[in-house]
Amino acid sequence: MKWAIGERVETRDAFGEALLVLGRRRDDVVVLDADLQRSNKTETFRQAHPDRFFDMGIAEADMVSTAAGMAATGMTPFANSFAMFVPGRAYDQIRLQVAYARTNVKLVGGSAGLTIGPDGATHQSLDDIALVRQLPNLTVLVPADANETYQAVFAATETEGPFYLRVGRYPTPVIFGPDYRFEIGAIQELRAGGDVALLATGIMAAKAIEVAELLASRGLSAAVSNVSTIKPMDPERVLDAVSGKRLAVTMEEHSIIGGLGSAVAEIVAADAAAPPLLRIGVKDRFGESGTADELLEAYGLAPPSMADAVLEAVG
């Protein structure tokens, strides 16, 4: 394991380190970026393997189609931009030439969510999970910390087929230790609890642990689960995580429409025994400029306000 528990690391840094190692191990790995290689942490790969790195210019649609053509000719391409632009700027290309075509393209949406911060709403992807989640054939991964991100990059490479990997630039505490083994589709319980089930994805997993601690101090026992595979999502695993609880809660740095909250809602709505669901995320609005922590606070995604929301919903 590369990073110690509690250390604050941006998942994009873990992605970049994994990519560099991958490039040494496999000569079929190529990397494309749309003029954001320093932000996306693909720059070290470029320096190590200039013959397998392509700066596609500011042309995301072209980048994704080119990656698909490379994949069809035996390469394993990673196509990178901000999560705002991949999938946003290249949605049609992803739909046709990656998902429908089942090309072995690994899409990476970097600097995702509100926590890209001061650049504001134009650069804050709150809809990328919604866009990719409903595409058949695509696997969608939103790792929680640096160690999980590092493993997820290898898992995505070793598994044939199209992937979307969401990473960010928020220094989030490492929560997984040396024994952790990432598995696509798994839902890990990070903390046991009897009253409510918190299901979190991405950087919200670490925040969910804080929320559970706040709730414990107020007399509510919360289980915390990490849902880093948004798709495919196994209904049984979700129901196992929420069954017997008074309330299920989803937490994501994304719109409450279309992301983890919607995915879980689709499952619990079909199960009469499942508890009611509270979806925590950005409530159908655009973001704005501010620091990452200011924004999380202002949009109800800081642990104290999330704990309040859970207490209010549980009644």
């Binding site: 980048m63 189609s65 053509g69």
Partner: peptide, 20 residues
């Protein structure tokens, strides 16, 4: 060789083949 139908994508795809 390629999934197409939404216009405009084939030349980029062909570039990818040529680069690979």
């Amino acid at each position: 060789e390629a999934c197409t139908g939404s216009l405009g994508q084939g030349l980029s795809f062909a570039n990818g083949i040529a680069l690979a």
